[in-house]
Nucleic acid binder design. Structure first.
Lengths: 155, 155
DNA sequence: TTGTTTGCAAACCTTTTGCACGTTA
DNA sequence: TAACGTGCAAAAGGTTTGCAAACAA
């Protein structure tokens, strides 16, 4: 993770997230299926966001015969359950990453030259967003910040 | 404009922006064409961001015979010249709005229920983003903030 | 068994591209 | 006139949907 501060380790987060996702899906009336299990496991391995197509390719490369439609349907389900965050990087496709149960999250640095995406976190920024959220007429439930420019290789 | 603070009036901004856009395009080797003139004029009437399809429809409704391809090509040109900001609201299409020459800009409140988009501005948020931008390894040239939730009608 | 979930293929929608024609300088 | 810009139509992605077969409870 690039940026101002780090939080807990990815490995620990991933393990917790898989368990949290399983529990949340179990609470719903959803059935246990190999496709969903595989997608949840695959999401947990990500450092940052990935597109549906990338997740699909990753699973097929690992021997799965999952269809792209199931990837989209499962991502929609996970997003609806608050288990996944949807990120728009402006490359014409949506990207997805696991959402931490405790609300801990990061934002994104996007390279306009090569499309590289990295994560960052900043407490002051979160505080400013929180303050704005309390002041506007909308009832805010989520937020996204994207910083665009040139990455270390492209600058 | 919804939110914490207002800045200069839309009418004044629009007029300035059309002049600024014309001047900027003239500096490039671009030719004056009716399609580009119409698109610039149409963009200037927007309160907030609009999709290419919406801009196209608006122009056709006003009697123009412009093609959708010209709308996309012109928006790309304007974006490349820094005259237009591209906004991703997550509805599957990019949205566009005039970019002020002085860097003055706003961010967006997006209603998850009805898709309504409104603008807001907050100085503390800008300051926080500026501070982060100076600290990360990327060289940041632009930023976007999206606050999601329920609008006044849907909350 | 019964309703859910799946993979495939087709459909859909946004955006891009090829091309012949019109327009600008 | 020579290059640039346009509208149209076709192509190219990404995403969604219809459906019969596979699967979980």
């Amino acid at each position: 993770m690039t940026g101002v501060s780090n939080h807990s380790t990815p490995a620990n987060d991933s393990t917790n997230w898989v368990a949290h996702a399983s529990a949340t899906l179990a609470q719903r009336r959803t059935r246990k299926s190999s496709a969903r299990t595989a997608i949840v496991a695959s999401l947990a391995t990500q450092d940052c966001c990935a597109s549906a197509q990338e997740i699909h390719t990753r699973l097929r490369n690992n021997g799965s015969s999952i269809g792209i439609a199931s990837v989209y349907r499962t991502l929609e389900l996970l997003h609806h359950c608050g288990l996944v965050t949807r990120v728009d990087t402006g490359d014409g496709s949506a990207r997805f990453e696991p959402a931490n149960p405790d609300g801990e999250h990061h934002h994104h640095l996007i390279c306009n030259a090569c499309g590289n995406v990295e994560a960052f976190h900043d407490d002051a920024l979160e505080a400013a967003i929180h303050a704005v959220s309390n002041r506007v007429v909308f009832r805010i439930t989520a937020h996204e910040v994207a910083l665009r420019g040139a990455c270390q290789n492209c600058r």
